[in-house]
C-alpha cells in the first residue's frame, strides 16, 4: 500500500516532529489529548494483528491494557523502575497473558476465545480488587521521577514516549502484513483447514498473533501511570478501551495497518473533542451504534468503502463463490 522508503521517511519525520513539538507548542492540553489518540493507535494496531489479520476477536482488550497499567504501576511503586523497563515488562506480561488465554481456548473455536477474553476482564479486575500490593479498589498513586528537561513537562514527555510506541506498533504491524507471518495469519482468517493443508501450523501461528497483539496492547498501558499519576481498576479496565480497540480497526478497515491508524485518529480525535461537550455515556452510545452500523453495512471499514468507490474488488467482502 505504501513503499517502504516512503513509509520509513514519514515515520522518521513524524517522530522528529513529535520531539520538536514541546519546543513549539506551549499549551500542555494538546499533549494531554494527543496522548490518548496515540494510545489508541497503539491499542487498535495491536488488536488488529490478531483480530484483523488472523480473524480472532479480542473483546477483552481492557484486560491486556489494564495488565500493562498495573505492571508498570507496581514496578514504579515497588522498585522505582524507569519507564523503559516498565514498558518492556508490561509488554512481556501482555505476551504471557495472550499466550495463556490463547492456549486454553484457541484449540477449539474462535468463539470461545472471544468469550474467554470477555470474562478475562472481570477476572483481572477481581484479582486487582483483592490484591493489597496493587492498591485494591482505591488504586495506587504513581508519581515517578521528573521527566528530562527537554520535554518541558511530564505530559509532553509521556506524549513523546507514546508517539514512539505508536510508530513502533505501526512498523511491526506493517512488517507482519508484508511478511510470511502476515500471509499465514490471513490464510488462517480465510480458512484454517486450507491453511493447515498448506503447511501453516495454525495453532502456533494463532498463539504468535495472541502474543504480539497482547504485548503491544499491554505496552500501550505502561505509560498510563506516568500520565495520570493515579491508577485504579475502573480506569485501567475501562469499557471504552475494549470498545474502541474493536471499533477503531473495524471503522478504519481491518485488512491493512492503515485501517486501525485511520480509525484511531478519527474516532480518538472526535472523542477527545466530544468529551468536552457531551457526557461519556453518550460518547459510548455513539461509538456502539457506529460499531453496529459499520459491522452491518461496511464490514471492511472506510478503506473498504474507499476501494469500492474506486471500483476495486480487492477488499470486497463478497463470498468468492460464484453460482456454478
Amino acid at each position: 500500500m505504501m513503499r517502504t522508503g516512503t513509509f520509513a521517511t514519514i515515520a522518521v519525520l513524524l517522530g522528529a516532529a513529535g520531539f520538536l513539538l514541546p519546543q513549539v507548542v506551549a499549551n500542555p492540553y494538546y499533549f494531554y489529548a494527543g496522548y490518548v489518540v496515540l494510545q489508541y493507535i497503539v491499542i487498535a494496531t495491536g488488536w488488529n494483528i490478531l483480530g484483523g489479520y488472523a480473524g480472532y476477536i479480542n473483546f477483552g482488550t481492557s484486560a491486556f491494557f489494564g495488565a500493562g497499567v498495573y505492571t508498570s504501576a507496581y514496578l514504579m511503586q515497588a522498585f522505582e523502575a524507569p519507564l523503559v523497563v516498565q514498558i518492556v515488562a508490561a509488554a512481556l506480561v501482555g505476551v504471557a497473558l495472550g499466550v495463556a488465554t490463547g492456549y486454553l481456548t484457541l484449540r477449539i473455536q474462535g468463539v470461545y476465545f472471544s468469550i474467554a477474553t470477555l470474562a478475562l476482564v472481570v477476572v483481572l479486575e477481581t484479582v486487582v480488587h483483592n490484591t493489597e500490593a496493587l492498591g485494591g479498589a482505591s488504586g495506587l498513586t504513581t508519581i515517578g521521577p521528573p521527566p528530562p528537561a527537554w520535554f518541558k513537562g511530564q505530559t509532553q514527555y509521556v506524549f513523546c514516549v507514546m508517539l514512539v510506541l505508536a510508530l513502533l506498533a505501526v512498523v511491526i504491524a506493517r512488517w507482519i502484513e508484508t511478511s510470511w507471518l502476515g500471509r499465514g495469519f490471513r490464510a488462517i482468517r480465510a480458512s484454517e483447514p486450507a491453511a493447515e493443508s498448506c503447511g501453516v501450523p495454525t495453532l502456533r501461528m494463532k498463539l504468535i498473533a495472541c502474543a504480539i497483539s497482547g504485548g503491544i496492547i499491554a505496552a500501550a498501558g505502561a505509560p498510563y501511570p506516568s500520565y495520570a499519576y493515579h491508577v485504579e481498576p475502573v480506569s485501567a479496565f475501562g469499557l471504552l478501551i475494549a470498545l474502541n480497540a474493536l471499533a477503531m480497526p473495524l471503522i478504519g478497515g481491518t485488512r491493512s495497518w492503515m485501517g486501525p491508524v485511520i480509525g484511531a485518529v478519527l474516532l480518538g480525535t472526535i472523542q477527545q473533542v466530544a468529551t468536552v461537550t457531551i457526557s461519556s455515556e453518550y460518547n459510548i452510545l455513539a461509538v456502539g451504534l457506529l460499531l453496529i452500523a459499520f459491522v452491518v453495512a461496511a464490514p471492511e471499514g472506510l478503506l473498504g468503502l474507499l476501494s469500492a468507490v474506486r471500483g476495486g474488488v480487492r477488499w470486497s467482502a463478497k463470498p468468492a463463490r460464484k453460482p456454478a
Partner: peptide
Amino acid sequence: ARMGIARSFQIPRPFTGMTVLENLFVPLDY
C-alpha cells in the same frame, strides 16, 4: 503437508484478501 501430502478442497477455499500469486506463497513460505 511437509511430508508431501497435498490436497484440494471440495469447496474451493482460496485465501481471500490476497492475490493468486500470494496464495501460492503461503505453502512456499511454510
